[in-house]
Each structure stands twice: as C-alpha cells, then as structure tokens.
Design a protein around this nucleic acid. Structure first.
Length: 203
DNA sequence: ATGACGATTTACT
DNA sequence: GTAAATCGTCATA
C-alpha cells in the first residue's frame, strides 16, 4: 500500500488528470533526504495535437517536447523565457502527447527550503502565498529543473505525487489558460482548474 | 547560420 | 499599467 500515485491514475486524458491532481501532494526529495512538498491547487490541461496552445500542436515532436510522448506518469519539464522552468505531469498513453501543467502549490512541507531556493531571485519576506503561486515559482521553490525532465514520477526517488486531500468537484473552478493569447479559440477554452478560493492560486 | 519568440517573473513608472 | 531579464529551441535559409 503506497501513498504514491499510480500509472493508472495518470493514464487519463489531460483534462481529467488536471482535475484529479488538485489536492494531491507534490513531493520533492533532496539528495540529503530532506522533503519539500506542496498541495497542488492549480493546473492546466494541454490536449496535444489538436490544441493550438500545446507544445505538441500539430504532432510536433522535437528534442524539447519528447517527454510529452512518454507514457502517463512521466515528468515534462521545459525551460522558457531564458530563465524559467515549468513542470508538467504527462497524461495518457505512450505517443499521445498530452500533459498537465502544474501552476501553483500550497506549501505543506519544507517551506524554509522553498524560501531559500526562491530567495535567489526574490526579495526577502515573501508571504507563503507567493512561494509557489506560478509554474516557474514552484519549480524554483522545489528545485525542479532540466534534470527532472522525463523522470517517471511513479518510480523516482527525487520527485513524486502522493495522495493528499479530497477536493469535491463542486470546489473546483475552471477558466481560460494563462499566457497563451495567441492560440485563438483554444486560448478561451476552460482548461485551467483551481481550488476555488484558495489563496495560493497564481491569480 | 540566423532570427524570432516563449505554457514567466520581477521591478519599475 | 509597461518593460526588462535572458537564452534554448525551432523554423527558415
């Protein structure tokens, strides 16, 4: 009996997985055994070949987005804007390039590490609500980077997901995804999900 | 080889 | 509100 999420859990379509990830606990273990963790409170689903906003739109398959084509349960970490990493949970089956971007966490364990890792770029005295409230912020806080790209989250000793709190469907809000204005009609689809009223959500 | 740009964050007016 | 930071990736040539 494990707390860790299963392969089966992650083989769902990305919109379903995006909803089911809310309330789960993202855990990072450092090399010295320290745990850093947060409850997932905001996600976005990317639907693959048909989705203009997805890196895999039109079946694009390059060295960068290769991890999106892995079996559900893999990590897809990409580098953007010359300075930021973003973390996704790959959904679906092998060669089905769909994924869920994790956009915000509610700090749960090791917030002193989060603050230290975040402080490199941010001034001191960050409130808890700004520690992990954005896809690149949470990667800073959990020290997630290129080295985690392609990891199997169901097996890795560095990064995984555990059962967290139950979030009733009625507590889930949905709206358009962020930062994809050029994606036309796809920019407006309600594929961003968050725990309604949670103060750690990115906006 | 070159150039445009990005699933963002931060600082500043 | 606007703009800078900062560079890997990818399409084009």
């Amino acid at each position: 009996m494990t707390l860790r999420f299963t392969r089966r859990f992650s083989r769902a379509d990305s919109a379903s997985l995006a909803r089911r990830l809310l309330g789960q606990r993202l855990v990072r273990m450092l090399d010295d055994g320290s745990r850093i963790a947060g409850i997932i409170v905001e996600t976005e689903a990317y639907l693959g070949e048909v989705d203009r906003a997805a890196h895999s739109f039109g079946g694009r398959r390059t060295p960068r987005n290769e991890a999106m084509y892995a079996e559900g349960g893999a990590a897809y970490v990409y580098f953007t804007y010359g300075l930021h990493f973003c973390f996704n949970v790959v959904a679906g089956r092998t060669d089905e390039p769909i994924a869920v971007l994790v956009r915000a966490l509610e700090p749960a364990e090791g917030s002193e590490f989060m603050r230290a890792f975040r402080a490199r770029r941010a001034s001191e005295g960050l409130p808890d609500t700004l520690l992990c409230s954005g896809p690149a912020r949470l990667c800073q806080a959990l020290a997630i980077d290129r080295s985690h790209n392609g990891l199997d989250l169901t097996e890795s000793d560095h990064l995984w997901i555990e059962r967290g709190r139950r979030v009733p469907p009625a507590a889930i809000a949905a709206g358009p995804r962020i930062g994809i204005d050029s994606a036309g009609v796809w920019a407006r689809k309600p594929l961003r999900f968050w725990i309604a009223g949670n103060p750690h959500v990115s906006r």
